[in-house]
């Protein structure tokens, strides 16, 4: 594989891995605190992307405002789906399978609402209208303004979320819920309020991921769904409950889809059309070989470092 191709693929790995991390952390948070592998998560991403697209088409081209609006719309979508569907179902003590099915249904409903909006305004396959500019170029390494927005924004948000979880009162309450919901309730943690904040954070981060994804790809009602398997692969690789594991998982998936895929194509002629199979292979391999994901490896590495 030529070195130029390796460099390009590594840049892509960082950019796409950062986006996967942003999406996957929300998924991990939902699973840890709410105890739900939420398939509607994909649609929070798409809702954020469409919010960003619409305001960019309206002439707002400041990336910070675009990201803020995407956060709000994603958060609102998640909180509304919680209040209307998931919260009433939890009160009925339905099984996890029912909740998963409900998340599929919520996702489909949001997706087709977005289809209706996109059809009405004829906004299919459009890009968020921030012009692409080259900021840095040396040899085959090219960094654009989109890279400068996507990678640092994702990384900063991931750091902020990690700090929030580990260093704030809300984070402690979330961790308490993740550990044992009944016990958390007994010791006086306002469970419903913490869950509301969790949904808000999860949806907001997904919305921001959608806006950033829409900067480098075309926005369509299926864009979130197209990415969700890779995001699930990242979360499962991270053990579904570990934030550092999820972040590492996101970059491993992105590395596999970009660098390893290109290596396989270049060296063995494996068709790039097999790229979508990679996250499935990762999911199955993890579930068969190492169901706890990378969590234990990270813990062990931490212990060795002490």
């Amino acid at each position: 594989m030529p070195s130029s191709l390796l460099v390009t693929s590594l840049v892509n790995t960082i950019q796409i891995g950062s986006l996967y991390a942003l999406m996957a952390l929300g998924l991990t948070l939902t699973f840890s605190v709410i105890k739900l592998p939420n398939f509607a998560h994909a649609e929070y991403v798409t809702a954020g992307a469409y919010a960003a697209l619409i305001i960019s088409l309206a002439g707002v081209l400041n990336p910070l405002i675009i990201i803020a609006v995407a956060f709000l719309v994603g958060a609102l979508t998640a909180v509304v789906s919680h209040l209307i569907v998931f919260k009433p179902l939890e009160r009925q003590n339905v099984s996890l399978y029912t909740l998963i099915l409900a998340s599929f249904a919520v996702g489909l409903i949001i997706r087709y609402i977005l289809f209706t909006i996109a059809d009405y305004f004829n906004i299919f396959d459009l890009r968020i209208a921030i012009p692409l500019q080259i900021l840095f170029r040396t040899g085959s390494l090219i960094l654009t303004n989109l890279f400068a927005w996507v990678a640092p924004t994702s990384i900063v948000l991931v750091i902020l979320l990690t700090l929030l979880i580990n260093r704030t009162a809300l984070g402690r309450e979330m961790r308490a819920l993740a550990n044992n919901t009944i016990l958390a309730r007994v010791i006086g943690i306002p469970v419903e309020r913490v869950k509301n904040y969790t949904w808000l954070l999860v949806g907001g981060m997904a919305g921001v991921a959608g806006a950033l994804w829409g900067l480098q790809s075309a926005v369509s009602p299926l864009m979130g769904w197209a990415a969700i398997i890779s995001v699930f692969a990242a979360a499962i690789l991270g053990g579904l409950s570990s934030f550092p594991g999820t972040i590492l998982g996101a970059y491993v998936v992105a590395f596999s889809e970009n660098t390893i895929m290109l290596f396989l194509n270049f060296s063995y002629g494996v068709d790039l059309a097999y790229k979508p199979a990679i996250p499935f292979i990762i999911i199955i391999a993890v579930l068969l070989i190492r169901p706890q994901g990378l969590t234990q490896l990270l813990k062990r590495a931490g212990e060795l470092g002490r």
Partner: peptide, 20 residues
């Protein structure tokens, strides 16, 4: 020739391969 999966929404890997 390089094929891409019909559901793909992000083609940076494919662009890198075509370029190479």
């Amino acid at each position: 020739s390089f094929g891409y999966a019909p559901q793909s929404t992000e083609l940076s890997t494919e662009a890198a391969a075509v370029s190479a």
